[in-house]
Design a protein around this nucleic acid. Structure first.
Lengths: 190, 190
DNA sequence: GGCTGCATTTGCCATTTGGCAAAAAACAAA
DNA sequence: TTTGTTTTTTGCCAAATGGCAAATGCAGCC
């Protein structure tokens, strides 16, 4: 819980009373490996802060292949922004890659925080913008590099993930097949 | 100018006085094809609204190749968000792909609009979030599709661009060489 | 130990894409 | 029109990646 508060305080001021209010709205939850936090077709009504563990966002592409769109690691918020904001069914799955500990906020709780805490909207906006910019900065360069460089960059950008995530998830995130990724790893380690 | 106002009104209310204030802060500008709106290494101090024409954002990758990161078309704002917000030198070039007509806002002007117009920050935040989400949604699926599918999706997502943009720009945006793109186009038209 | 189920690696070959240079086409200037 | 410049297409071959199936490795379990 303190992790979340420290995270929020990076983006704005909260007094003790406001901090207590935030805490009171958070529901501590665990999610076991492979379970879904949200599923395609459903309208998301909650936002989670990932305290421990790894999530991935995935979907099925035009050929029916399961694609990992990106990974979410500790100390980040999890939400399908589009669907959440517009109340439309999500087109993606959010799945726990490892056992996870979360803090869950309902849409109503967030609404109340927004109305009660002056700085709240500003904090959330900063977090949202930062997360989206980071996402673009991670994905965008991949198109311009070959598979080996993409894998090496992945190791740099997600140093804690490589040994906790199945090869197949990593491969589809990088836009290659898992056998190609396996071969790339062999070549690198020589 | 009316284009801009209509665009802003999609995201929030502005009364006549506020509209006049916005208009008074905009500097109508033209930028000829191939010229830069902003360059890598410089700290951006302006935001532009693209009324007519096409921009592209580009940079040089690890192999020294010029990569088109994305295109910006009519009725969108142009800014290197990271560099602009943090006052750090940009790592990208923003270039006019065709002759362009712009409305330019200085950082000071935007500051004043933010302080004067209650709804301003909310409007800007919505526009920012929407633009970033769109960007992710355009780029992200490309990694999971082959070059031909990427090109076809490009035609769908940027229907007005294909015949106004050099092949080499499109190719690097799609993550392929221009000869590959040329071959793909030949195969499709059969 | 010996199964069983799952993840990863490997081999083989087909397909896609890249690299490079020349040819062709498109465009602009004189 | 002619000339010169830039963009796009093409040919040829090399390199990277995909598809598929078999082999291997690994962890849990009886």
């Amino acid at each position: 819980m303190e992790t979340l508060i420290n995270y929020l305080l990076q983006f704005g001021q909260l007094n003790q009373q406001q901090i207590e209010l935030v805490k009171s709205k958070a529901k501590v939850t665990e999610l076991k490996k492979d379970n879904y936090f949200s599923e395609a077709g459903k309208i998301p009504r909650e936002v989670a802060f990932l305290v421990e563990g790894i999530f991935r966002v995935c979907y099925y592409n035009s050929k029916g292949e399961e694609i990992t769109k990106y990974f979410i690691d500790e100390n980040n918020f999890v939400v399908d922004l589009n669907s959440y904001n517009q109340n439309i069914p999500s087109s993606e799955y959010v799945q726990a890659v490892t056992d996870c500990r979360l803090l869950i906020f309902s849409k109503e709780a967030l609404k109340e925080l927004s109305l009660t805490i002056i700085a709240w909207d500003s904090i959330i906006n900063q977090i949202t913008t930062k997360a989206l910019v980071e996402k673009v900065n991670k994905i965008s360069p991949m198109l311009a590099e070959d598979a080996t460089v993409r894998y090496l960059s992945f190791l740099e950008k997600f140093p804690t993930l490589a040994n906790r995530v199945p090869l197949s998830y990593m491969a589809s995130y990088l836009g290659i097949t898992q056998s190609s990724l396996s071969r790339i790893r062999r070549n690198i380690s020589n």
